[in-house]
Design a protein around this nucleic acid. Sequence first.
DNA 1: TCCGATGTATTGATGTGCCGATACATTGGT
DNA 2: ACCAATGTATCGGCACATCAATACATCGGA
Lengths: 132, 132
Amino acid sequence: MSVGLEVDLASAVPVWEQVRAQVVAHVAAGRLRPGDRLPTIRALATDLGVAPGTVARAFRELETTGVVVTRRRAGTQVAAGAVAADDGLRAAAAAYARAAHAAGLTPDAALDLVRGVLLATPARAESAAGRR
Amino acid sequence: MSVGLEVDLASAVPVWEQVRAQVVAHVAAGRLRPGDRLPTIRALATDLGVAPGTVARAFRELETTGVVVTRRRAGTQVAAGAVAADDGLRAAAAAYARAAHAAGLTPDAALDLVRGVLLATPARAESAAGRR
DNA sequence: TCCGATGTATTGATGTGCCGATACATTGGT
DNA sequence: ACCAATGTATCGGCACATCAATACATCGGA
């Protein structure tokens, strides 16, 4: 394992989504930094035991969201603009995670809660058009 | 509208999931409190323009997660055990939401981040057995 | 006791998303 | 100029989830 990606083939959530989420998490946590290279599509596909198209799907999503940048021969690497979450944000997330944990919430329940709060947020200014 | 539920029939996320998430959000936010009655399945179904089974699916999920309790003739109401998030938790969620908003994250990106943090959390002690 | 209101279960059709396989395009090194 | 490594595109099949429709079970009040 190079960056430590794992997937659960039996899971209900799609493999490509698992890959995408893990990369996003790694970047946000600073374990993957701008310029770092990800495994090649084929290598990762073989490693995970899936078809290349599946990994490609994940990478494509990551690129359209600006997390990675990919050049034909050079492979795929973390985009320069894909900054890790700043300390304040990460601290807030960590604080929330601790609180949720202390309250005995399951991860799903915890996610539901923030989802509700985020949706209730005033009407974000459609900034990054299209962005998922 | 009684509790203010709305669904987007054209959305990619299932109608039943939209209903479920909204109820959870309302409960967590304290807008729905233990003992409060939800609309009947038929009423809500008609209101939303979907089949009863669809709403029933949402309510079923809510019941298995302990958010609501339902008795044959009495309808469906918010469970006594379904406490709203305590102030600390809600504050943490709100703080995070503000930080995410300030950082320009889209709701999806913000969710990805907490998901990553939650998954990275030490290994929660399988407490509430089953609970999704 | 009867009836209407409410949740529950079943069945079937439809869509659509995932994934594998494979062929293609492009690019940088030698 | 060539070639091998890398990402991209396409096609098909399989599976499964969603949703509608409808019939059933259960309960409380009049």
